[in-house]
Design a protein around this nucleic acid. Structure first.
Lengths: 243, 243
DNA sequence: GCTAAAAGTTAGGCTGTACTAACTAGTTGA
DNA sequence: TCAACTAGTTAGTACAGCCTAACTTTTAGC
């Protein structure tokens, strides 16, 4: 009897335990708005593979809950509370990805899908333990920055391979994480975070981009190149970890 | 239009991807029926903390899906397919519990709650990797047997501490996993899987049971004792692992 | 400045899972 | 044998999320 009394389910302060779909909306809105900007209904719908009408409905409910600011016909913006929730989910997702890759040997093209489900089920507690177990990495396996426990995140904008100047050495810092086939292809080409590359040539009208990766020379299309982000090569930055 | 058509959701062969509530029902029915017996509506309702009416409804749908055999007013029994699904979930749950405890240092009173959510999100792939990472244990941290990948499980029935003969040395093999406070209390008393115990005395009318654990002598109530399962002490069995 | 296209919304429906209230079937004890 | 209790069911409702179809608002090009 007195033992049962002790079962207090300590809720982490404000958190009302968002549903999986809600977390997905917030994540999408955050990613579209890059943290601070606005997101259009259609863009949210496309990213979540939902009908725009569904987004209209959900968005109104989320606004009622104070998670986002919404003006009819004019897109949405996360509130501070919505932003915090989005970053919490993003942290979960990326820590889980990193953990799966580093601790369980998951191939980097499969971590995203698994994390997509686990991020809604794992507690913050568990995620923190995972982070500690792999040495609190700053980025996930695709180079995306991992938000800290209290919502700080590196929002540096990087230049994609598609818009790079020719002849300047760069460091690959991040690649898009959603398409497994693309990730396998990039890994084959050694275009992975931490690699030094130089754009050698770019053909006009959507033509191929030629680049040097290590001692190899490869050609990729602009659609793929747009999914590879790069940073300047500096003395201190190297090896696939930023910080 | 044509883009929407492409949304093919490649289902993994037979598995229709059960929802979390469905998996919970199957698990509950399996546990109540000990694998083969029947489960009463009210018992399912109580275990899942739902209204009996809700169970009636769900049970009919599960019967339609071929997961269980159902005769109105006479309880339900898992079909072979239902049993397989239940064991798949049970395996997930217990491997996750074991992994959390062994690989991430989770305290044994918290693994159950976390696993309760993760079991619905983790892929079989991930669960297998976790199992390998901790050496394919046969039991979870509370001593519950872990079903194998192909649905085999140790269904040995053990004698609870409440119904034990006096003076006979026994081995604790399993404790109930759901109540964190109870688990902390048991750990305090060193009543954990693998421990040798002897019942020294039992008072009638629900009175305390006195037992020797190591060099200590302790007294517990029959309600608690019923949640501790024991096996005979043999030469080969020892140390908290069965098999 | 107007009109057509694009973007977004509302209306109405469906499914899954839960609830309460009211009813029925099965069981048990006098 | 049947009344009363227990167990289980049906009926009707709700809510979250999704959908399509039809409508409205905004925007962009002339």
């Amino acid at each position: 009897m007195s033992a049962a009394r002790e079962h207090v389910t300590t809720k982490p302060a404000s958190a009302e335990a968002l549903t999986a779909p809600v977390e997905d909306y917030l994540k999408a809105i955050y990613t579209i708005g890059k943290g601070t900007g606005a997101a259009a209904t259609n863009e949210i719908a496309q990213r979540l593979a939902l009908a725009p009408a569904s987004v209209s409905g959900m968005v109104r409910r989320l606004a009622d809950q104070g998670l986002l600011a919404y003006e009819r016909y004019h897109g949405v913006k996360l509130t501070e509370s919505g932003r915090r929730a989005a970053l919490r989910t993003l942290r979960r997702h990326r820590v889980i990805e990193a953990y799966l890759a580093q601790a369980l040997g998951y191939p980097w093209d499969r971590v995203h899908e698994e994390a997509e489900r686990l991020e809604h089920a794992a507690s913050d507690q568990l995620v923190d333990r995972m982070a500690v177990a792999i040495g609190e990495p700053k980025v996930d396996p695709h180079g995306a920055p991992i938000p800290t426990h209290d919502g700080a995140v590196d929002e540096t904008e990087y230049t994609s391979l598609a818009e790079l100047a020719i002849g300047v050495p760069r460091l690959v810092v991040r690649v898009a994480d959603e398409d497994p086939a693309m990730l396998r292809y990039l890994a084959e080409l050694s275009v992975v975070p931490g690699k030094r590359i130089i754009v050698k040539a770019r053909e006009p009208y959507g033509g191929p981009i030629t680049l040097a990766v290590g001692r190899q020379e490869i050609s990729i299309g602009p659609a793929l190149a747009a999914h590879v982000l790069t940073a300047p090569v500096t003395g201190k930055a190297s090896g696939g970890r930023r910080g």
